[in-house]
Amino acid sequence: MPNACIVRGEIPADEFALYEALSSLPDVEFEVERIVQSGDEAAMPLMWIRNAPADAVEEAFGRDPSVEELELLSAFDDEQLYRMQWVSEVEMVLQMLTNSEATITDAYGTDGRWYLRVLYPDRDSLSKTVRFAEDNGLTFEVRAIRQLEGEPAGRYGLTEAQFEALETALEAGYYEVPRRTDQSDLADRLEISHQALSERLRRATGALVEDALLVGAVETRRDDS
């Protein structure tokens, strides 16, 4: 049975929607929460905009030809949630959603690049996107591929050693308040040094946070034995 995979990839901003807005707001973070197809030639994202006042964002979007039907849904001190239509520079996105039957779980734009995390039903579907990019003079740089295998570690971007450390720590009460154990005891249980345990827990926590929350973060991580 084919296994789904999660792919981290990059697209240059000048080949993607919101290029004009991204260029005019260089220090602003664009984070897409969801993208769905809207008709045959458009996509509808929900997008968080951070580090810019709402009036500056709306002025920049108003000059961007790839955007229509901008709607402010929520606003906070330094971020806003918008719904909009992407009506140009979305060929790659539509290919992923339709021909490849993929799900774009995250997209993060800043500093001239878009970073995407895409769930593909199998490797063949990913190959369709890669071929589409090559055939149409577009860029989709695949940075990492993670197979969604049955083991819990693989599903969450952890090594087996990292998963074992987290599981042991949780079962021993390390994350309770107050803690029922400490790292010295955990290291003894796992038969590793205190330093090795500390590094393993730190990397495992970072992997979980990145996998669950961040897409524009560090693209590679050294394997933890």
Score class of each variant (00 low, 15 high):
residue 34 R to P: 00
residue 42 A to K: 13
residue 91 E to S: 15
residue 12 P to T: 15
residue 19 Y to C: 13
residue 55 D to S: 14
residue 158 L to Y: 10
residue 32 V to H: 01
residue 82 Y to K: 07
residue 161 A to I: 05
residue 186 L to H: 02
residue 175 Y to T: 02
residue 29 E to Y: 08
residue 219 E to D: 11
residue 9 G to I: 01
residue 172 A to V: 00
residue 198 S to F: 02
residue 120 Y to F: 15
residue 94 L to R: 15
residue 161 A to G: 07
residue 7 V to G: 05
residue 58 E to C: 04
residue 162 Q to P: 13
residue 165 A to M: 00
residue 119 L to E: 12
residue 163 F to W: 14
residue 47 M to G: 03
residue 113 R to H: 10
residue 211 D to F: 13
residue 71 E to Q: 13
residue 138 L to E: 12
residue 210 E to S: 06
residue 90 V to D: 08
residue 119 L to W: 08
residue 7 V to P: 02
residue 108 Y to G: 00
residue 195 Q to N: 10
residue 206 G to H: 04
residue 31 E to T: 09
residue 6 I to S: 04
residue 43 A to T: 14
residue 201 L to Y: 06
residue 78 D to P: 00
residue 15 E to V: 12
residue 81 L to V: 07
residue 122 D to F: 01
residue 180 R to Q: 12
residue 51 N to T: 03
residue 96 M to T: 11
residue 132 F to P: 01
residue 39 G to T: 11
residue 49 I to C: 08
residue 88 S to A: 15
residue 55 D to R: 12
residue 18 L to A: 08
residue 34 R to S: 12
residue 186 L to W: 05
residue 7 V to A: 08
residue 128 K to G: 02
residue 45 P to R: 10
residue 118 V to E: 05
residue 174 Y to S: 07
residue 223 D to R: 06
residue 162 Q to T: 09
residue 127 S to A: 11
residue 110 T to S: 09
residue 116 L to P: 05
